[in-house]
Design a protein around this nucleic acid. Structure first.
Length: 570
RNA sequence: CGGGGUUUAGCGCAGUUUGGUAGCGCACAUGGUUUGGGACCAUGGGGCCGGGGGUUCAAGUCCCUCAACCCCGACCA
């Protein structure tokens, strides 16, 4: 490709809207342009890299024996009604009506569609196992799109679904996908980690996420260096720390704590450390209210709460509901006489003579004892793991990191096959539900994640595997005949050898060409300059210091070798 | 959904306090000088100042209203 004919709208200045590295660089390098919040157009350079990510995914899915299909993004409401998700998705689903006033949506995910498809086509155990996948556009009306294509409302997802005879078959299909994912992310040049994830109210026997370590990640990963334990904080199991609490034997006492609404204020007011308090939080789980207790220095993990209660939705109770239940202003809730179930984190079991709210505005209780002063419905692990916490596997120290979720693999079991009546006839002639798994990769997010991990102050540093072009040939001065001719020769030779080369034939100053080449992140640069008449060029690898002088032929040879090595499948 | 901020040329911004017919840098076009790290000089084109309504002789500026976009938070009592 000749740069003179390529739409590569690089920007010197950073658009004000971009906060994170990948978003800034994608805009500056002219890979994408924004159309609306969370909706982006891909320019030629961005599209080439995006397609390469898709192609790597396809190769590995095909290698794992999965079949590629393509489902419509525009779907009738009926598709989501049997599973109940037409309602569950709520405002996150883009909905529309056709001219006959029939309900449609833009598909946010395709479990139902694949299930239905297989139901129509598969009848016998002889047709299983089967794994289908597609690379398609998904639509989710995110409450807050952000970070460019990292969290957008329209995005490309590779979603795969496995259909097996039994749990053992599912384990095998799952393992194949797990391995395919490892290969995919490795080929994309990503440093990633695999974490245990919450399998949610869906039940299912397991779920893992592929996380790219990055400060801008929206997920938190709990990791133990000592034993390798690694889990999403939503899932990470917490065990009580070793703090000792002595019962002081005193009776419960109500004390005046005016204008004290938070744990921090209470700590100052009473001069007692945070961990001596028990926080009482009122939650609304579906239509039921419950009280949840955690130590004052801990946070509640809502996912764990949701799983414990088997609730569809869990949210903090509105202030008005809190007032009605506790008969006090928000900030003075305690576990006594609430008339609702009280769930306590395991750590509460070991506590004595602690402080709680008094369910009376302006008052707290001190010297509180569980069992004597109030009853707990059930103890459970309900808190959030934190940096420095205790590893649930080996007891050593947990560290937390931020991660970008680029892939998620999930053992669904029979959730959808039962809901949609997807069965097959087994060898005994019985009709039994198919065992399913589902597996997703965020394609655009992968692209952004790669940039997060591969850039410097000058721009993107693409891994060869997904660089939009491999080699940038730069004649320093296109008006110099010798330079121009040699550059053309190198460019054409590279093309003939299957190398994706570009030639910067624009009548620009060399600085502009160098800057653009670096910003866009082309892995190799061959500069044809002063020594063109001696057949000497400069060979530079993006991201490395300095350059080498080589004869034109040696540079071509080196480039071909470097690129072939870089795109070699693992 | 709550809070904050922004909206003026393709991009980055000033101008709003104190109303008087819109400006800077980059980018773009033309000419010239340049040609190894985002050149320089000259000239030029480009704006319903987010939309609507109002006040006023006069509104980018004041008032009302709607919208889009960005950030933070999403209730930890």
């Amino acid at each position: 490709m000749r740069l003179s004919g390529l739409l590569m709208p690089t920007l010197r200045e950073v658009p004000a809207e971009a906060e994170i590295t990948s978003h800034r660089l994608m805009l500056r390098a002219g890979l994408i342009r924004k159309l609306a919040a969370g909706i982006y157009s891909y320019m030629p350079m961005g599209l080439r890299s995006l397609r390469k990510v898709e192609d790597i995914i396809r190769e590995e899915m095909d290698r794992a024996g999965a079949n590629e299909v393509l489902m419509s993004a525009l779907l009738p409401a009926e598709a989501y009604q049997p599973s109940g998700r037409w309602d569950v998705f709520g405002p996150e689903m883009f909905r529309l009506r056709d001219r006959h006033d029939r309900d449609f949506c833009l598909g946010p995910t395709h479990e139902e569609i694949f299930t239905e498809t297989v139901k129509n086509e598969v009848k016998s155990y002889k047709q299983l196992p089967l794994t289908l996948y597609q690379v398609g556009t998904k639509y989710r009306d995110e409450r807050r799109p952000r970070f460019g294509v990292m969290r957008s409302r329209e995005f490309i997802m590779k979603d795969a679904y496995s259909f097996d005879l039994d749990e053992k078959g599912l384990d095998e299909s799952y393992k194949k996908m797990y391995e395919a994912y490892c290969r995919i992310f490795t080929r994309l040049g990503l440093k990633f980690t695999i974490v245990d994830a919450d399998s949610g109210a869906m039940g299912g026997s397991g779920s893992q996420e592929f996380m790219v370590l990055s400060e801008v990640g929206e997920d938190i990963i709990a990791h133990c260096e000592a034993c390798g334990y690694c889990a999403n904080e939503e899932k990470a199991e917490c065990i009580p720390d070793g703090k000792k609490f002595e019962a002081n034997g005193k009776e419960i006492e109500k004390i005046l704590t005016p204008d004290v609404h938070t744990i921090a204020q209470l700590t100052d007011f009473l001069g007692v450390p945070e961990y001596m308090f028990v926080k009482t939080i009122i939650y609304k789980a579906d239509d039921k209210f419950v009280a949840v207790l955690v130590r004052g220095d801990r946070e509640i993990n809502e996912v764990k709460l949701q799983n414990l209660l088997g609730a569809g939705e869990v949210e903090l109770a509105a202030p008005a509901d809190v007032r009605a239940i506790t008969k006090a202003e928000v900030g003075f809730a305690g576990p006594m006489n609430l008339g609702i179930e009280v769930y306590a984190d395991n750590e509460i079991k070991n506590m004595h003579s602690f402080v709680t709210g008094a369910n009376e505005t302006g008052y707290h209780f001190v010297n509180v004892e569980t069992g004597r002063d109030f009853e707990v419905t059930k103890y459970a692990d309900l808190r959030q793991i934190t940096n420095g916490d205790i590893c649930p596997k080996c007891g050593k120290e947990i560290n937390t990191f931020n991660g970008i979720e680029v892939g998620h693999i999930f053992k669904l079991g029979t959730k959808y096959s039962k809901a949609l009546d997807l069965t097959f006839i087994n060898e005994a002639g019985e009709s039994v539900p198919v065992i399913m798994g589902c597996y997703g990769i965020g394609v655009n997010r992968c692209l952004a994640a790669v940039i997060e991990q591969h850039s410097d102050e000058n721009g993107i540093i693409w891994p060869v595997s997904i660089a939009p072009y491999h080699v940038s040939v730069i004649p320093v001065n296109v008006n110099n005949q010798a330079q121009k001719e040699l550059a053309e020769k190198i460019y054409n030779t590279l093309l003939e050898n299957g190398i994706e080369a570009i030639i910067d034939d624009r009548d620009e100053r060399p600085g502009v060409k160098f800057k653009d080449s670096e910003l866009v992140g082309i892995p190799l640069r061959i500069t044809v300059g002063k020594k063109a008449e001696e057949n000497i060029v400069e060979y530079k690898i993006r991201g490395s210091e300095g350059f080498e002088e080589k004869t034109a032929d040696d540079a071509i040879k080196a480039a071909i070798e470097y690129i072939k090595e870089g795109i070699k499948s693992i």
